[in-house]
């Protein structure tokens, strides 16, 4: 699903955020991406969603070489990827319902289909009763779950999350991770960047560890990790 071949990302100011990173995340796999702040976790996720482009090396998503993807084709790629952000990136002038519906509006679904899918997604994250609320009236954990609902509402085959539990207490974090696992169990490939090591240790998934832009562990899939076909 995601393949990095000797990927380096150098910023114009000379800073090298990723150096020679190679790994392969299979379809249906779930993995964690860890490392200290500044180790390159966010950059790696940005390369997958084409928010940034790799300086050298190849990034393939779903078999597609992103270096060859023209600018105007980027939206199509992003529609196939659900992204959960640490700061949720919700629109505060719209209700929970309309926030979650955005990817479907973009994709051009009918109103009926949109309503059905939005309610299904909100139901999964346990916020169906808040659909008419505005994001400011929600707690941090609830906002994060709205962001998660928005990320999965279009049924993407790949789900990326950048520090999704960064602002949550352990209880809520465990809840959010449970949701990722649930999505993974229905076949979604999941890559979660986090430094919440205590939680990672509880869960039976591969962990890719970055240190100063280099992948120091987890490049190969250990035989013990689960892969949902």
């Amino acid at each position: 699903m995601i393949r990095f071949v000797d990927v380096t990302k150098r910023y114009p100011n000379g800073y090298e955020a990723l150096s020679g990173v190679s790994f392969h995340l299979e379809q249906g796999e779930m993995a964690f991406l860890t490392g200290r702040s500044g180790a390159g976790k966010s950059t790696l996720l940005k390369l997958i969603a084409l928010i940034e482009r790799a300086s050298t090396g190849q990034v393939l998503v779903g078999g597609q070489n992103l270096a060859k993807l023209a600018r105007r084709r980027i939206p199509e790629l992003r529609r196939r990827i659900g992204v959960v952000f640490q700061d949720h990136r919700l629109l505060f002038d719209r209700t929970v319902y309309h926030n979650v519906a955005l990817p479907l509006v973009i994709a051009g679904f009918t109103h009926q289909e949109t309503a059905k899918r939005v309610r299904a997604a909100l139901d999964k994250v346990g916020l169906l009763h808040r659909e008419k609320a505005y994001p400011v009236t929600l707690s941090g954990g609830e906002q994060q779950r709205v962001g998660l609902a928005r990320a999965v509402v279009n049924r993407p085959s790949l789900l990326l999350a950048d520090e999704p539990t960064g602002n949550l207490d352990p209880e809520l974090s465990r809840e959010v991770f449970g949701l990722f696992r649930a999505f993974n169990q229905v076949g979604v490939t999941v890559l979660v960047a986090t430094h919440d090591l205590s939680l990672i240790e509880e869960l039976p998934y591969r962990t890719l560890t970055l240190e100063e832009g280099r992948l120091i562990a987890g490049a190969d899939r250990p035989a013990t990790t689960e892969v949902t076909p």
Binding site: I51, P75, L77, R79, R80, L91, I106
Partner: peptide, 16 residues
């Protein structure tokens, strides 16, 4: 601006 960024992130085309 924030709205434009979010729309771009979740795959809004330029036309949209």
């Amino acid at each position: 601006r924030d709205e434009v960024v979010v729309l771009k992130l979740i795959g809004g085309s330029d036309a949209f």
